[in-house]
Computed example of a mutant assay.
Amino acid sequence: MSKVGETTLVLDLAALEHNYNYLRSKIKPETKFLGVVKAFAYGSDMVTIAQKLEQLGADYLAVAYVSEGVLLRKAGIQLPILVLHPLVSNFDDLITNQLEPSIYSRNILNQFLEAAKAQEQTNYPVHIKFNTGLNRLGFSETDVDFIVEETKRSECIKIISAFSHLAASEDVNERDFSLNQINSFKNLSNALMDKLSYQPMQHMLNTSGIINYPEAQFEMVRSGIGLYGYGNQAQVDAQLRPVATLKTIISQIHQIDANESIGYNRAFKSNKPIKSATLPIGHADGIGRQYGKGKGFVTINNKKAPILGNVCMDMIMVDVTEIDCKEGDEVIVFGHQKSAEKFAATANTISYEILTAISQRVKRVAVGA
């Protein structure tokens, strides 16, 4: 990758293609593939990633909220888009932009039927979400008859899929729980389809589910974090390539004497002469204060540089005492050599959090197209 002159998130589209092909290789050729691009495509660039997935042959996309789907439509994305958490106030925009809602409760079903009727829709595609143990969103077994009755009573909507979500698909210690979820979903979706005159798709597997429970791939699978290079398991991570590399530069180097302090609240005090480097990235860019005080580190000229003191809003200071470097040199926060998962682990969190935290003010550059 080329060097940068400012804080930049470099997006490797060749890595995205590699990850997509790897995950595709784990499913049957006829199984549909849904790429999850919510939260700015896990903190990267939603439009760029969606365009690449469309080019690669993905069958579906998914976002969390209607506004995300609208942005994709405005960018010219034609793929079907599932909205995982649609809100009633956005139903008109959802229909106008031909987005497909997850219907997860009696209230949402009734409200969407009203919106579809008001816009004179016929057979508008919806996805029925069942709760099988995650206990976040979804219908229960006692709702099946209600779903069927309300759907048949109106020609406004058509159930295009039934789906659920695994709670611990990456955890081998929770295999029994995951298998129970899969069986519960089979029972719920079969009960639904037995009462319908047509057969909706079924989908349940996330990235770790694709790897660990291929027998439950049904007609479609959904992958989010795996597309971006993380598999929640070391052996899977080894097969994937991180898409995002966060880079910055050294703005200034300071010689710090013994007993001097660095940064706000004098959170770091030196007990010997050291050399520090100030970098133009801080908690407003997504590097939270939890990474300060020596927990997090960056890489400069292939050497580890721990963060000194508190993370500032726009800057961090790092220890470069043992590193041959100069102002303007490139700095790697995370990427191919040190993954976001490893960076996040220094603050006892996960790759999802650091990836999605990267501020929109950080420049995005796509390479490898």
Rank of each mutant, 00 (worst) to 15 (best):
S251I: 12
S359F: 11
S270V: 13
A258R: 11
S67H: 11
I147S: 03
L113G: 04
T31P: 04
I81G: 01
S67N: 11
Y60M: 09
Y352I: 13
D285Y: 10
V37I: 07
E215I: 03
R175M: 09
K338Q: 13
F40G: 01
S197C: 05
R106K: 14
K363E: 14
R364K: 15
D145R: 10
A191G: 07
I182N: 04
I160T: 00
N302L: 06
S223C: 10
T278H: 14
A58W: 00
L109G: 01
A191T: 03
E6D: 10
D314E: 14
F343E: 08
D329A: 09
F297T: 05
E174Q: 12
L246G: 04
N212V: 02
D257F: 09
G35S: 05
I95H: 03
S208H: 08
Y22H: 05
L53G: 08
T132Y: 02
F163K: 01
T122F: 12
K26N: 05
F112Q: 00
P214N: 06
L192A: 02
E100Q: 07
D93E: 15
F40C: 13
Q290D: 12
A238N: 07
K338M: 12
D285G: 08
S251M: 15
H283K: 11
D314T: 13
F130P: 01
Q239N: 12
T31F: 08
Y60N: 02
D324A: 09
A50W: 04
A167Q: 08
Q255W: 11
T132W: 04
L82A: 04
M204A: 07
P280K: 07
I103L: 04
E155D: 15
M317D: 06
R153I: 03
Q78A: 15
G57M: 10
G231I: 03
D329N: 15
M313I: 14
L188A: 04
L87D: 02
K52Q: 15
V243I: 14
K293I: 10
A366D: 15
I128N: 00
F177H: 02
E353R: 05
G5Y: 04
N180K: 14
